[in-house]
Design a protein around this nucleic acid. Structure first.
Lengths: 134, 134
DNA sequence: ATAGTCCCTGCAGTAACTACAGGGTCAAGA
DNA sequence: TCTTGACCCTGTAGTTACTGCAGGGACTAT
């Protein structure tokens, strides 16, 4: 019934040691234990870990992840604070979407030009260069 | 005329130490030096550093950045290899765009619901949960 | 010429993992 | 039953990607 640390590890492509590390720094709650002192998780922890991993993969720091998790943890927290944090993260998310969209366009162009021999004029760096975005 | 390490640092919001670090590990070329042994950069290095920083911010590892820079460095490299790397990165970029889009939707919902009192039902974790995307 | 702001090298410290070492738990098979 | 293999435990040391000094030189403006 309950999920082991190995189940969470496989489901989220996270090292077992990393799951324990997140517990140690307080990002994941201390889970229930079995008779044999094994960690026993539920679906909630799986969801939380999945969120952490994907947010990390998207370039958010653990402190930022902590703040976003706080948005869902503190149901009764004051709205002004939540609103500010959410707006900050939304701006960053939109900037990242814009950057990735530019990168996608250039990667597509590279693949296109690869069809016929060697790359004549690679613009992959220009895609995220100093004048791109913003 | 030439750019100092401080100019690059300011233009790309990168610590001076980090620029030197990228040079040390070979991500940035060893630049020309002035009489006083100061590093002297051009626009090409500025573009390259800008690319590195944005790619890092988007969650790519330095090894992945190195591979992407290789795409543009090796103009004469065989097309099959370039095509494979580019397609892999394109898939990853598209997954990240999908994740960020889901995250944007949930952050927007949080901000919306904040308008009238406390958050009733925050689904921010579900946005990047185990069944989201793909 | 001297104060302030930059630059240099080299090395130590931090964040976020990641990899053992040394040992316990548990299901399956001889 | 017992033992083999795959998993789990704690604790600690190493890695990646920066980041922050220390100690000293270069350049600019008063």
């Amino acid at each position: 019934m309950a999920l082991t640390i190995g189940d969470l590890s496989k489901a989220t492509a996270t090292k077992v040691e990393t799951v324990r590390y997140y517990e140690r720094i307080g990002l994941l709650p201390k889970p229930a234990r079995t008779q044999g002192n094994y960690r026993a998780y539920g679906q909630a922890e799986l969801g939380r870990l999945s969120f952490i991993r994907r947010a990390r993969d998207l370039g958010f720091s653990l402190d930022q992840v902590r703040a976003m998790l706080g948005l869902s943890d503190d149901q009764a927290c004051d709205c002004a604070g939540i609103d500010r944090i959410a707006r900050e993260h939304l701006q960053e998310v939109e900037r990242k979407i814009a950057d990735l969209t530019a990168l996608r366009r250039e990667l597509t162009a590279v693949i296109q030009s690869c069809d016929g021999g060697t790359i004549a004029d690679c613009r992959i760096i220009e895609a995220l260069g100093p004048s791109a975005g913003i």
